[in-house]
């Protein structure tokens, strides 16, 4: 089963920058039942395999508890893996010590969700952005300051404001500061953990465009995390839909929107409110029942089966394998016993 769960879309024509193999991350649950002997675990990420091509953007999409943020922190090795491999640029870094990880810290960076929590409120913006230089001993004094100001300019901030504190900036500007910090050492890979979901609509578009511009300019590779499918359409080349620690469907962006195969993807797509009254009144929503189950005791068989409108007996017993559809050439893989056909997807 291990081998089958690999991203079944190997792209020999593309240069893989990041490869995840069977990544598993469990968190122990601290509960009152200490004397029971067996400890419960949150199955945050449960066997995820993925290839990320250099210079491209892959989006990880899913709701609360699907493990997307945990996966992001496994990639950047902020967390140790329970098992599996993270291969960056050909080297397996999943068991690297902190010291051995240091050179990789320069090559992969992270942009965080919360524009308020991700910047230290007691430090000046200039010194926050310069952190990367300080830690890795790059540039000193005036040169460092010049580099910081260059970065601020790059992300659309006034370089004269390097002496200000984060509280003096709005949410969108703070997110730009976070981007500047992440780009300081010219990373190859940037993991964006819901970078715009805390921002106002008119500002979201500004930040998304900035990220796209920077990708073109600097040849960045993005892993872009989002909780719904509305934002990622513009930024990603490929999308992986996650549910309870697993990838349930992965496809090229246009393909996923045009031909969703997994009932969960379909429900996610139909749940996104469309800002067009006529479309909104015409389309039929696929309403799921209930909430996402606890990742401590995930359902047996297919994890989506208790909420799935298409579930049958086999779904509760047998765990479907993420695999390519017959005759598929675009690398559209789905983990479902009864995937949707072309006509069945929502409008």
């Amino acid at each position: 089963m291990t081998a089958e769960l690999r991203d079944p879309s190997p792209r020999t024509d593309e240069d893989v920058l990041l490869r995840l193999e069977e990544v598993v991350k469990y968190f122990p649950v601290t509960s009152a039942k200490v004397f029971r002997g067996k400890r419960d675990h949150v199955h945050a990420v449960d066997g995820v395999s993925l290839d990320v091509a250099r210079g491209k953007t892959i989006a990880l999409v899913g709701e609360t508890g699907c493990g997307k943020s945990t996966l992001a922190r496994c990639i950047t090795r902020l967390y140790d893996l329970t098992s599996g491999k993270v291969v960056f640029d050909g080297e397996d870094i999943s068991n690297h010590s902190r010291r051995r990880l240091r050179p990789y810290r320069r090559k992969m960076q992270m942009i965080f969700q919360d524009p308020y929590g991700s910047l230290n409120p007691r430090r000046r913006v200039g010194s926050i952005i310069a952190d990367a230089f300080t830690i890795h001993g790059v540039a000193e004094g005036e040169e460092r300051k010049a580099k910081v100001q260059e970065l601020m300019e790059l992300v659309g901030l006034n370089p004269e404001h390097f002496n200000r504190f984060p509280a003096e900036f709005s949410g969108g500007q703070r997110q730009r500061i976070g981007i500047a910090r992440a780009l300081a050492l010219h990373p190859q890979l940037v993991v964006c953990d819901e970078p715009v979901s805390a921002l106002d609509v008119s500002i979201q578009a500004q930040v998304i465009n900035l990220l796209a511009d920077l990708q073109d300019e600097l040849g960045l590779t993005y892993v872009f995390i989002a909780h719904d499918l509305s934002v990622v359409r513009h930024v990603s080349d490929r999308i992986a839909v996650m549910y309870l620690g697993r990838i349930v469907e992965i496809a090229d962006t246009d393909d996923l929107y045009a031909r969703p195969r997994h009932p969960y993807t379909n429900a996610l797509l139909s749940a996104v409110p469309v800002p067009d009254p006529d479309v909104a009144s015409r389309r039929e929503r696929v309403l799921l029942v209930g909430d996402v189950p606890s990742p401590i005791h995930p359902p047996t068989g297919c994890r989506f089966h208790p909420r799935c409108p298409r579930a049958q007996e086999v779904c509760a017993v047998e765990d479907p394998v993420l695999s390519l559809q017959q005759g598929d050439r675009t690398g559209h893989a789905v983990a479902c016993h009864f995937p949707l056909t072309d006509g069945e997807a929502h409008a």
């Binding site: 719904d228 996104v272 929503r285 309403l287 909430d291």
Partner: peptide, 8 residues
């Protein structure tokens, strides 16, 4: 709330 719950 999550999108699917929002729809509900």
């Amino acid at each position: 709330l999550d999108v699917t719950v929002q729809a509900q």
